[in-house]
Every structure is written in C-alpha cells, then in structure tokens.
C-alpha cells in the first residue's frame, strides 16, 4: 500500500531564474515527511513538482521506482489538500467529495460507499448536503481532506493546510491529521512554514532554504544536532540564542566570561544555546554569563525572561514553572555544557 518517493537532482527554473537547485531526497513508504522553511524557500514548489502541477526542469522524480516527470498529475496516484482548501463553492460537500470519483467514472454505488466512509472517518456526515460557504474553517478543512481520502491515493500531499485556521483549531487539526496518518499508513508530504507543526507531526523533517536542503532528519535529531546556524535557529521555539564567541583549544570566550569545555573548539565563532537549556539556579551547570533582566513573561507553566549580557547581546531564557525574577535584576545564567551548540565562521556546526 505505502509508496516510496525518490527525488534525484531535482531542479526547477523559471527562465533564467533557478529556484530549486538540485535536490536529492528519499521518502520511505508510509513516512510522514514535512517540508519546512521560510517563505520563498521552494517548499511549495517542490511539493507541486511532486504533484505534477509544476513541470520539473531537471532531475528525476521516481514514485515506487517509476519515473514520473512526464506523467500527468492525475495518473501519479496523488491527492493534495490545498492551503485555500480549493472546495468548489457551487457543489455540496457530497458533490465535492464525489467529484474526483465521478471524473473517474466510478459506479454511483461505490462513490456513495467511499464518500460515506470518508465522511465517517472525518466526522462530517451531517454536513454532506451543505455548501462550503455554510461550513466553518475547520469543517472546510475536513472536507478538503475528505476529498483527498475518497480517492484512496498512494500519496497525500498537504500544502500549508492549517495556515487559514485559528490557533486552537490548528492544534486540533494537527492532531487529527497525525491520527489520520496513523490510521491510513499512506506516505504523506506536508508543507509548512510553522516549525511547531513540523516538530509535532513529522517522522522526517526536510529543512529547506533558498531552494536547497539544509538538513534532513527526525524532529529530535534536528533539535539536538542541527547541522548549521540556519537549522539551529529555525527549529525550536522560542528560537535558539546565538552569542558571539571566540575559542582557543578547549576555552570558549563568550559574553565577557569564559567556559572550559571537554573538547577542543578552536574555530568556534558563535555559541548557540536554547532558551529552555539555560537556568538561573546557581550550581546547575557552568556559568555562561551575567545578564540583566529586561522583560519577564509569566505564562504560568513557564517564565520567559528577555535579558541582555554584559556585552549587550540579547539572550532569552525559558524557566520551568513560576520563577521569581524581577525586572532590571542582574542574574547569572547557567548552562549544561553538553547542550551547547558551536558554529564556525561559515555557520556550520563543530
């Protein structure tokens, strides 16, 4: 049932302007892969090339070993959920779900059966006679997913499907899509610019920037071992702190102080540390820097501290629970040296 996708040196250019610069990627059967990256990084273009909605300029796209570059979209066994849902406003929910099957000239009884099954999975049975304009955002999203399910495709593609929903609904739909993947077991590719969606849903994350893959890996792999400054800054929320540093052998000079590490770090110019890995408790790990508290956000379960080092570098700290930190206070920030990330002048991790 599950399908393997192979991208080999995939290139996309519009005239002289190249937007995807030779991408190699393997997506294993049944995998939930998320393409993530900032706006304009080429993630949607890549998805559309896999879907067959954009011609591939160069390279090979293989689905289950078969070259698909010139195969029309409809014959790739792919269903796609669009950011705008792309529901037909003049058709009822039932007609929207049935459209693809009617196009394929499927018998009416089978169409009814498939629509009923999809409606049951997505809990949209009471909505089948309604028009899209009579549905809420979340319901429309379900119908859009339903339209993909009824076709029983080999591969599901999602192009930023949750970006039009409010925050609460987004979390809810995120869970539902993840469940759907567990239930159906199909290969799915999901595009988002929201790294939280990527982290929570993906089996495999593909981080893209300016048409090239920066890193591919499991969510925690990317979180724990980012390959470069870009991935380190993109994955994780709040963002990783970056402090200018210099190093000689095992000594790292940063924020007016110095840290002695258990390995040589010569060449390190940037120290990265996640806000949640910093504590203000004396004796917990090594002292990183003295900081002045500029702003405190008490979220109840967490306290977010916005601070500045003595050499004027901004640093954010996330403390578990409700910490009694006061504005303008000078405190010492401590870290576990094992959770430090160091990058050289090229931005690569060392």
């Amino acid at each position: 049932m599950s399908t393997n996708i192979e991208l080999s040196r995939i290139v996309k250019a519009y005239g002289d302007v190249s937007v995807i610069h030779g991408i190699d990627l393997t997506i294993n059967p049944g995998e939930f892969t998320v393409f993530v990256g900032p706006s304009g990084c080429g993630k949607s273009t890549l998805l559309r090339m896999i879907a067959g909605l954009e011609p591939i300029t160069g390279g090979d796209l293989l689905i289950d070993g078969e070259r698909m570059n010139d195969v029309p979209a409809a014959r790739r066994g792919i269903a796609m959920v669009f950011q705008s849902y792309a529901l037909y406003p003049h058709m009822s929910v039932y007609q929207n779900l049935a459209f693809g099957l009617e196009t394929a000239k499927m018998p009416k009884a089978e169409i009814a059966e498939r629509v009923a099954k999809a409606a049951e999975i997505l809990k949209i049975e009471p909505l089948l006679t309604r028009k899209p304009k009579q549905l809420s955002g979340g319901q429309r999203q379900r119908v859009a997913i339903g339209r993909a399910i009824v076709r029983e495709p080999r591969i599901f593609l999602f192009d930023e499907p949750l970006s039009n929903l409010d925050a609460e609904l987004r979390v809810q739909m995120r869970v539902e899509i993840a469940k759907l993947h567990n239930d159906l077991g199909n290969t799915m590719i999901y595009v988002t610019h929201d790294q939280v969606e990527a982290m929570t849903m993906a089996d495999k994350i593909v981080v893209l920037r300016a048409g090239v893959i920066e890193q591919v890996g499991a969510p925690l792999d990317l979180y724990n071992n980012p390959k470069n400054l870009f991935v380190a800054g993109f994955i994780g929320s709040p963002k990783m702190n970056f402090l200018t540093a210099s190093a000689t052998d095992t000594t790292l000079n940063v924020a007016g102080g110095s840290l002695t590490l258990d390995r040589p770090v010569t060449g390190a110019t940037t120290l990265g540390v996640r806000p949640e890995h910093i504590t203000l408790t004396p004796g917990s790990g090594a002292k990183l820097a003295d900081v002045r508290v500029d702003l405190v956000e008490n979220l109840g379960g967490q306290t977010v501290v916005y601070a500045t080092t003595t050499d004027n570098q901004p640093i954010n700290i996330v403390l578990e629970g409700q910490s009694p930190v006061t504005l303008g206070e000078n405190v010492a920030a401590h870290i576990d040296p094992a959770r430090l990330h160091l990058f050289n002048a090229d931005g690569d991790a060392i």
């Binding site: 879907a51 909605l53 979209a73 409809a74 796609m80 669009f82 792309a86 693809g100």
Partner: peptide
C-alpha cells in the same frame, strides 16, 4: 487551485 484540484482528479 480549483483547476489544479480538478486536474489532480483527472
């Protein structure tokens, strides 16, 4: 995207 959805549907 309505046409794209339709073309994916064949």
């Amino acid at each position: 995207d309505m046409y794209e959805a339709a073309s994916l549907d064949g």
